[in-house]
């Protein structure tokens, strides 16, 4: 059963008021403007045993996403297509407010929002993932782990997911006469077929002011947020209002315009980071 959450970490009134008053003047405690993203670092191939992976730092938020490919049976309604399964876990290491255990409603919502955006956009070309049509296909498991929580986990996770998928390669497979599949994980054949790229852009609202990429302190004062999935061809690939609060029609349309502009450039940033791996990043300190 879902219930009104307690404020996880209590922000002192004075600090909360300062954050809100500054945002109303168009500036933020970090020095960012309302439509500025925090710096992004992407380390692809961070996990050698994964078929694709990425460690992402968004400011002080750290997320690792990994892709594992398994040979499995297709869903009956899509016998000639691969399948996608997205899961997210908020690790207790990431925040004193996270408890061990099965994913809570926030982790489930996050995974489902990212899953829907990939699925609806047909971001991955599932038709190329049949191994023995109707019988054996690739199942793509995307698992997202939040390692350090400083706000905006959805966008950090969507950046990590896209980066990990772009880093994923399909191993060599051999099918014998009786249809048995043998996988050679040491021989990589081709990148995962990608049709479209997509990221989410989170637009937060406090007292009629909209701003993007809220950090943890800012998440403590916002009324609500809109998570908007933006495709590389500037379409809206999903929306989720999240948090107790509401928005006017005008605010929603303004948030969309901000998200579309930010999302397209964010995808370009990710593409360049994935192509030029680990620029000056030391991978033994979580990319710091």
């Amino acid at each position: 059963m879902s219930h009104t959450p307690s404020p996880g970490i209590i922000t002192p009134k004075l600090k909360a008021n300062t954050i809100v008053n500054m945002i109303k003047k168009g500036i933020r405690s970090s020095g960012r403007g309302l439509t500025d993203y925090r710096p992004i670092d992407v380390v692809v191939g961070y996990v050698q045993n994964a078929d694709g992976s990425a460690l992402v730092r968004l400011g002080n938020t750290v997320v690792v996403a990994g892709v594992k490919l398994e040979v499995g049976s297709p869903y009956p309604d899509t016998p000639n297509e691969g399948a996608l399964i997205v899961n997210a876990e908020f690790m207790p290491a990431a925040s004193p407010t996270f408890e061990p255990g099965p994913p809570d409603e926030n982790a489930i919502e996050l995974a489902r929002v990212i899953d829907r955006a990939l699925r609806e956009l047909k971001a991955i070309d599932m038709s190329k993932l049949a191994i023995v049509p109707g019988r054996r296909v690739w199942i793509i498991y995307v698992d997202i782990y939040v390692l350090d929580h400083d706000g905006n986990l959805v966008d950090a996770s969507s950046i990590a997911t896209l980066s990990a998928l772009l880093n994923t390669t399909l191993p060599k497979v051999e099918v014998d006469e009786s249809g048995n599949v043998r996988v050679e994980k040491n021989i990589r054949m081709s990148p995962l077929p990608i049709n479209h790229k997509v990221v989410t852009v989170t637009v937060a609202k406090v007292e009629n002011v909209l701003f993007i990429d809220p950090d943890l302190d800012e998440e403590g004062v916002i009324e609500t947020k809109l998570v908007i999935a933006v495709s590389d061809d500037s379409r809206i690939a999903g929306i989720q209002k999240s948090g107790s609060g509401g928005l006017t029609e005008a605010e929603i349309l303004a948030a969309l315009d901000i998200a579309l502009k930010t999302g397209v450039s964010l995808i370009k940033t990710i593409e360049s980071r994935v192509l030029e791996p680990t620029l000056g990043l030391s991978t033994n300190t979580l990319g710091q």
Binding site: R116, E120, L121, L226, S231, R235, I236, A237, G238, I239, Q240, K241, G245, G246, L247, T248, E249, I252
Partner: peptide, 10 residues
Amino acid sequence: LITLLQLNGV
């Protein structure tokens, strides 16, 4: 106020 908004699709 719009208090729920989801989009499943493009």
